[in-house]
Design a protein around this nucleic acid. Structure first.
Lengths: 124, 124
DNA sequence: CGGGATCCCCACGGATACTG
DNA sequence: CAGTATCCGTGGGGATCCCG
């Protein structure tokens, strides 16, 4: 479980802190985006599309997203086990905002990388 | 300087990773939002509105945001020193997206907290 | 297959002291 | 005032093993 309680405790109702401490972490948005792209995915299916995430972190991220009602977890009583993850309706409502961020990033990434380079030069 | 180079190295042009590793960190969006709310702020002015950030972290966040051209840093040659931070035009273009996230969070926070509580109960 | 439990390292980040 | 430098604790997170 991610440890976000410290600052949430200081500002328990601050929406920006709440949203950032949850979906703004290293992997959550990427998981949501990947689920939206492929509809429904199993645990290792997700890991396939996000190769540089560890099982531990993927598991933790999924647990947080499930706890917040952004994804649903469907377990099939089979052997070997089969678990499917999907966006919930609430999770779907977050997708447009994520897409907006991706669009913004795509449109600005070239200039930002350039600025970043120049900044490093002038601060060597 | 925040350590985001590891995953950026794997996906150097992935916009979602790029945007998240920069503005999705613990403080950046909050700094941008605070600057937008107050127009122009000095270092300690920012700290006043974000009391639970340390000088070290605020300094690091400001450096990243400046390197990415999202805020501008104006130094006055005075004693004692005076430094003013403002959003750049590029930084301004990010504000609507941040506001959308805040609106979404505000609209959903109550239900999310409720779901979160129930999830904890069923996973005790 | 889908995780949980454990071990362990090191980077994040707070506190303090110092400087131009 | 606006930071930087240094020290240092802790918890984020990888690697590995295990289990239903």
């Amino acid at each position: 479980m991610l440890k976000t309680e410290v600052n949430d405790a200081l500002f328990p109702t601050c929406p920006i802190r709440n949203v950032l401490s949850r979906i703004g972490d290293k992997w959550s948005m990427l998981v949501l985006y990947t689920l939206e792209q492929h509809g429904v995915l199993r645990f290792n299916g997700l890991k396939l599309y996000i190769p540089d995430i560890s099982k531990k972190m993927l598991s933790a991220a999924l647990k947080v997203l499930e706890a917040d009602g952004l994804i649903s977890r469907k377990v099939y009583a089979e052997i070997p086990p089969k678990v499917e993850y999907t966006l919930t309706e609430r999770g779907q409502t977050l997708i447009p905002l994520i897409n907006n961020l991706i669009e913004w990033a795509s449109a600005n990434i070239t200039d930002i990388v350039e600025d970043r380079k120049n900044f490093l030069i002038h601060n060597s």
